[in-house]
Design a protein around this nucleic acid. Sequence first.
DNA 1: AGCAATACATACTTTTTTGTATGTAACATA
DNA 2: TATGTTACATACAAAAAAGTATGTATTGCT
Lengths: 120, 120
Amino acid sequence: MKNNLNITENIQICAVDFAFKRIGGKYKARILWYLFLKGVLRYGELSRTMPDITTKMLTQTLRELEEDKLINRKVYQVVPPKVEYSLSETGYELIPFIEHLHNWGKKQIAKEIEECEVCK
Amino acid sequence: MKNNLNITENIQICAVDFAFKRIGGKYKARILWYLFLKGVLRYGELSRTMPDITTKMLTQTLRELEEDKLINRKVYQVVPPKVEYSLSETGYELIPFIEHLHNWGKKQIAKEIEECEVCK
DNA sequence: AGCAATACATACTTTTTTGTATGTAACATA
DNA sequence: TATGTTACATACAAAAAAGTATGTATTGCT
C-alpha cells in the first residue's frame, strides 16, 4: 500500500520532469520563442533583442539549449566572428507549448489588471 | 537602433515570463499534473504519491499554487485535520500545456534510449 | 497519562542559479 | 600602431531555491 503507482504513471512523472529540466531555465523559453518569431538570429541580435540578459547568461543558456539539441548553432569562420542560432526540429516541437503558455499568460495578465483596484 | 522592439513584442515576452514564474518551480507542473490525473487529493495522498518531495517543499509549493489561484484548498474543521486539494479552473487551463510537455518528454526519452549505445 | 493520526511550521544549511566585472582573440581599417 | 567589431570566457559574489531536522496542535482511543 505504500507505493500504489504503476509503471505508466512513473513514466509520466519522469516525462514532465524531464521536459521541464530542458526548458526550465529563466530565459530558455523566451529564447526559443524569439528564435521562433524571428527565425535565424546572430548572437548579437539575440543579445540586443533581450537586453536584460547578460552575455554570460545568454551564452550559458544557448550552450545548454544546444546540448539538449533544441537549437542549431552555425559558426562562420570569419573575422569578426559570426555565429547564427536557429530552432532545431526538436526545439520547434516545443513551440505549441510555449505558445499555449504565452496565451495563458496574456490572459492572466489581463485578468489581473482587471482585478487591480489601483489600476482603475 | 538600439531597441527595435515594439509594444506587442514586449507584451509577448512578459507573458511567457509571467506564465513561467507561476509554474516554473521544481514540482509545480508535477503537482498540477497529478491533481489532473487523480482529481481531488488530500495532503497525505499527494505526499505519498510523490515521496521524493519533502513536506516542507510540498507545503511551500502548494501555498504558491494556491496564491496564484491554480489550485483550490478546502479545509475540513476536524481532528485529525483534513485538507483537500484540487485544480482550479485557471489551473486546469494549464493542463493542455503540461500534457504537451509530457508527450514531448516521453518522445525525447524514447529517442535518447534509442540512441544510447550502452542500452543496446 | 501516553500514543496515534494528519497537516503542517520553522530554523538552519546546502546547493543551484544568476549576476558583476573584466579579459581575450583575430583581423580590417584609419 | 591603435581602434573597432563580434562572440564569447572566466573568476568571483550574491541571491534564490531546495533540503534537513525537528517541533506543534488537536482530539479520540487505549
